[in-house]
Write a protein that binds this DNA or RNA. Structure first.
Length: 331
DNA sequence: AATGAACGCAACCGCAGTATT
DNA sequence: CAATACTGCGGTTGCGTTCAT
């Protein structure tokens, strides 16, 4: 296949390295409003100095609302081991069996933990055998037909991370959940599509995790949208014509919305055990959070975000602490 | 307390596959 | 049908953090 490939972007004009909270928030804000039909064009439209691939990666691996953070459960690890036996380094395939987990994360876990553990386990044949025999998917190793796996395999993991409150729908306006989900899942495997769309319902029923009122979610996003100094690039205007934007009427009930949002924020902070930290300081990482806060201020001031009168530092502090933020997983 | 080594993770790179023109 | 554009995947790397000395 001779594909003379043009570079995906002008490397000299794109920023590389870790994403700042401001960039994250701009990306989320944009995708929430416009979706991500075209990754290549997205950075420009969103006002990001990033390569489209970089945006995609960031979204898929960390910012997506249904991404699950935190340590892998033993069940998940076992699933990875089993699937790796059957599929090899097909990380995306493996990830499709672990809802909320990304291929990158699984790859990292495998390379850093599981592989070593298995090597040690190989030294101890009994140990390894234990893994094999306890493995309900052992038969796949004998006849590793991916299709049969796809048909049979249901992830044997708990849908919620034991240590983390459910944030699967974090930031999802009620009426947008479907559109965003479908947007996300349109490219995902059937398994992922199935689990990501069905799980929230299940969790809503167990009364544990879905009590977060959804309405303020929209407010939250509207609030973020309102903060975005790059909010209205000209390329984005047409989409608002077909009713995608929700922020247009934000000003009408702004006070009420912000109040609602703050109430919701407090609720989430309670859920996350973040209350008690002063000025949004992360309880797990005091100095780190402080540093991050500092960076946040730097980033946002660069973008003149902090100078906006309606800017709420608490919102950004919270934003910087949500589970998808790489600095903050492990809550 | 300081320093170096090891580890873990986020992000980048390049290739392959698929869709579009 | 070929060329091009774009997305997705897997391998790899660089950096920050943690641990050991």
């Amino acid at each position: 296949m001779g594909r003379g490939r043009a570079p995906c972007c002008d490397k000299s004009k794109v920023k590389k390295g870790p994403w700042s909270p401001a960039e994250d928030y701009r990306l989320i804000s944009f995708i929430q409003k416009q979706g991500h039909a075209n990754w290549r064009a997205l950075p420009k439209q969103a006002g990001l100095l990033r390569c489209g691939k970089s945006c995609r990666l960031r979204w898929i691996n960390y910012l997506r609302p249904d991404v699950k953070r935190g340590n892998f459960t033993p069940e998940e690890e076992q699933t990875i081991i089993n699937l790796h036996n059957a599929l090899g380094n097909k990380w995306s395939k493996i990830a499709s069996h672990l809802p909320g987990r990304t291929d990158n994360e699984i790859k990292n876990v495998w390379n850093t933990h599981l592989k070593k553990r298995l090597v040690i386990g190989n030294d101890d044949a009994n140990c390894h055998q234990k893994i094999e025999t306890s493995n309900s998917f052992t038969s796949y190793s004998a006849s590793p037909s991916p299709s049969s796996i796809d048909e049979q395999q249901e992830p044997c993991i708990s849908p919620t991370h034991p240590n983390a409150p459910n944030l699967e729908n974090f930031g999802q306006p009620a009426e947008e959940t479907c559109s965003l989900d479908s947007c996300i899942n349109s490219k995902a495997s059937p398994e992922v599509r199935k689990t990501t769309t069905e799980e929230p319902k299940e969790m809503a029923q167990d009364g544990n995790t879905m009590e977060i009122p959804l309405e303020p979610d929209a407010d939250f996003w509207n609030f973020l949208d309102g903060l975005d100094p790059m909010d209205k690039p000209t390329e984005c205007q047409p989409q608002q014509e077909h009713g995608v934007s929700q922020s247009s009427n934000f000003g009408e009930n702004q006070q009420e919305d912000v109040h609602e949002y703050k109430r919701w924020l407090r609720y989430l902070e309670n859920e996350l055990g973040l209350v008690g930290g002063n000025d949004g300081e992360c309880p797990q990482k005091g100095a780190g959070a402080e540093q991050q806060q500092q960076q946040l201020v730097t980033d946002t001031s660069d973008d003149e975000m902090m100078s906006r009168p309606e800017f709420d530092p608490a919102a950004m502090a919270y934003f910087s602490m949500w589970p998808s933020s790489p600095q903050n997983f492990g809550i």
